[in-house]
């Protein structure tokens, strides 16, 4: 097999595997937004506060997915 093709294959598989970590971020965002929407439904007066905290929580959950993304970006574009 062509060595160049082997490297491309390994990079593609590795980047794909690294992105599995994004699933955790997705689950976390779903849970936090679900909880925030339920809270907003119960007391709509506090929508602004809940929304701010929800966005913060979403950003933290998203951070984990972004770490996975950084790993896969490094595999794709930096590793040689």
């Amino acid at each position: 097999m062509d060595p160049q093709a082997t490297i491309v294959l390994g990079k593609a598989i590795g980047a794909g595997l690294a992105m599995i970590g994004a699933a955790g971020g997705g689950i976390g965002i779903g849970i936090s937004v679900g909880g925030a929407v339920m809270a907003m439904g119960r007391n709509p007066d506090h929508t602004a506060t809940i929304q701010t905290n929800m966005i913060l929580g979403v950003a933290f959950a998203e951070a984990v997915a972004i770490y996975a993304l950084v790993v896969s970006l490094i595999i794709l574009f930096v590793l040689s």
Binding site: E62, A63, I66, Y67, L69, V70, L73
Partner: peptide, 15 residues
């Protein structure tokens, strides 16, 4: 954590 969060989000956004 700080540096890679911002880098990842903005670099992915640029791409």
């Amino acid at each position: 954590s700080f540096s890679f969060r911002l880098l990842g989000a903005m670099f992915a956004g640029a791409i």
